[in-house]
Design a protein around this nucleic acid. Structure first.
Lengths: 159, 159
DNA sequence: ATAGATGCAAACTCTTTGCAGGTCG
DNA sequence: CGACCTGCAAAGAGTTTGCATCTAT
């Protein structure tokens, strides 16, 4: 992955792509947060300054910007999430509050070789996902790891 | 994660859950493949033997079986995928053919400490995702990493 | 001027839910 | 028998697309 700085907007234009106001703003919004926002979140933020922007435009641009390497995207239950930090790094998802934290990242070649060598696969990218409880949630003792599901599979239930 | 063997069906009954024919079959189908199937895939397979089963039932059961620890689920662009192998292991996704391979897995404590120690997070789970090209696809020289997106963002295009 | 972008609304895909009837234990 | 499950159909949530209009270059 190429770090942000290396991706000037000339790269965009060179590909016949334009730097429109909505597009620029969408990219700014994603880069301005480390909350790994959803399309809906970006949409809301963008509309504060450009109220006429449509959700479709936000989706189109997020998809495009990710494809062109200006930001990273990752699938998540409940939708895609985007990340303005395109430098290699890992993620920690807190099972209690759901927040996703950036983690320094492990880029060592040894990690990739581990996979490549034995089976002959060519590793282009790798990322580690951690799950647990963040400092804040650990302090709130009682707070249980979010149950992620209703214990009723097909019928409501008082809880 | 608790390995398959430790999860007898008694565990189910002990929780007041039943082992119905659809449920049993759904679990069998997921466990019988290492292709990390989608709900739709499981649905098709299940219907070969129980033609009356509905897609909703497949979803309900996959969600439940995952929640109870009988199988693992992971979000993926294009839907959830399920994995009958609940022992800790990693995944390699081939960008050319899209197949997901199981990889031996890295369970060392050192990996978790790396995150836990510096920031005070409690790591309960961790998994590494690799992306690249599998042996088969490397042999077919020409085969390019699937473009994942259409180079048109809002208009069709001959390609 | 013109290829590329946008807004709007409709279409799609995947998943969940309400409900009446069926079934496991 | 009673709690749990299921099928069916309808509703949701998130994302994509057709098309006429607009705009960056």
């Amino acid at each position: 992955m190429i770090p942000n700085k290396d991706r000037g907007f000339d790269t965009l234009r060179a590909r016949g792509l334009r730097l429109t106001r909505p597009r620029r703003l969408i990219l700014d919004v994603v880069r301005a947060t480390d909350a790994h926002p959803t399309a809906a979140f970006v949409y809301q933020r963008v509309r504060r300054r450009l109220p006429r922007v449509s959700l479709a435009t936000v989706h189109r641009n997020l998809r495009m910007l990710a494809a062109e390497g200006f930001l990273a995207e990752r699938a998540d239950a409940g939708g895609m999430r985007f990340d303005g930090n395109t430098a290699p790094h890992d993620h920690f998802t807190c099972l209690a509050c759901g927040r996703i934290y950036d983690v320094p990242g492990r880029t060592e070649r040894s990690v990739r070789r581990r996979v490549a060598a034995p089976i002959g696969f060519e590793v282009l990218e790798h990322r580690t996902e951690y799950y647990g409880r963040c400092v804040a949630c650990r302090r709130q003792r009682g707070r249980p790891p979010v149950t992620q599901y209703r214990r009723s599979y097909g019928r409501p239930q008082g809880h």
